[in-house]
Design a protein around this nucleic acid. Structure first.
Lengths: 204, 204
DNA sequence: CTTGGTAGGCGTACGCCGTACACCTACCAA
DNA sequence: TTGGTAGGTGTACGGCGTACGCCTACCAAG
């Protein structure tokens, strides 16, 4: 009987994502998203309880694009995990400003739960269970989220790595040398190199 | 000749830390820190350029307490790394609200650079160099920062793990089961279990 | 002991933010 | 045609970071 809604949750999320992609995390505000949609600020509150809920919406919107289907069962289990991680990284790499939001909203994201479920399926198939499986999943999530954040917060200070290479070598000889090496390592190679280390450790 | 300063950087940092410990990250503001010190808000700007610099100050203040001395050389290298990581975790565990700040300010923290330098010393002694050393350091930092954040952001939703255990088992059979297991795993055991996995992977 | 210059500290104000609240009105069912 | 429901809006409030200009405590020089 009442007046019908004129916006969908996906439209809200897409507008918020547009703001994030264009102007970065600091520019995300209720007013900015409302302007993006051409409605008044307060109109948003007919769709979300508060800003937090809008953030969850955009996280869900982005992560929903991650394929959480089981990877090719012919692959060894470590490569299957790598496929799953790569899908996640590719998606978030396209929207770096969303990465910090995934940290704070991870508990409430169905998409992330589905992803974790698939990871657990692979781990279980590889013989993991009980505490060992808990630790495997948590360490994977810890590594992936930590590495993605370093990658994207580090990007805003890509100057950061440069600054490290320029440290006083008398105080930080190894950091200076390692910083110089680091500049020659492709970020993707670094990310998956670290993941490979973790997976090797998981395999005993 | 001019009027002398009446506050030290350490006093600023300590006041900010008091606010963080008592009221959490969201309560950290220039006004709150000024009130904590009994001075006007604008007085702080005689000591820091902006809020960002105050955050760096508190990160430095906290991390300065981490012992970055080389661990007992008699220990195997992996245990030496573990000692260094444990020192970092103990310090940040006492001030969980600071953890997110360490992510954003890590590039500018001398204390963190000193810690990294010591980690590199151990790695170098264990035969790491070049790209392999870069990846070892970055993956350690990624794991540690990711795991600490999960631990402390997860704490605010300790309800989060409970919610996971209560997921519809038909959609998330493994997550539900793993969530139940997870509740019985001590966080410290989980953290160092994951670290051990990573270190095992590093050792080939 | 006086005095002048330097820089510390403060009050005010501006433009953001999230959001509570009251109002108007477009819409659909009856 | 009309009434009720709920969508959309405008205003306002208290918080935030911080630019700016003033007052004044302090120390050095005389």
């Amino acid at each position: 009987m009442p007046r019908p809604r004129s916006l969908s949750h996906d439209q809200l999320a897409a507008a918020a994502l547009a703001v994030l992609d264009r102007d970065g995390l600091a520019a995300l505000s209720m007013r900015a998203v409302a302007k993006e949609l051409g409605v008044s600020t307060m109109a948003l509150y007919r769709y979300v309880r508060d800003r937090d809920e809008l953030e969850l919406l955009v996280v869900e919107f982005v992560l929903a694009a991650v394929d959480t289907g089981a990877p090719d069962a012919g692959l060894p289990w470590r490569e299957r995990i790598e496929v799953l991680v790569r899908r996640m990284r590719d998606t978030l790499g396209a929207h770096p400003a969303v990465v910090p939001l995934t940290m704070t909203h991870r508990h409430h994201s169905r998409a992330l739960l589905r992803w974790s479920e698939t990871v657990l399926m692979v781990l279980t198939g590889a013989g993991f269970d009980g505490e060992r499986r808990v630790i495997a999943l948590r360490s994977l999530i810890a590594y992936v989220s930590g590495a993605l954040q370093l990658e994207h917060l580090g990007a805003l200070s890509g100057a950061g790595t440069a600054a490290i290479s320029a440290l006083p070598p008398e105080d930080f000889p190894l950091m200076a040398a390692t910083g110089r090496s680091a500049r020659q390592v492709d970020p993707e190679r670094e990310f998956f190199g670290g993941l490979a280390v973790l997976l090797r450790g998981l395999a005993d």
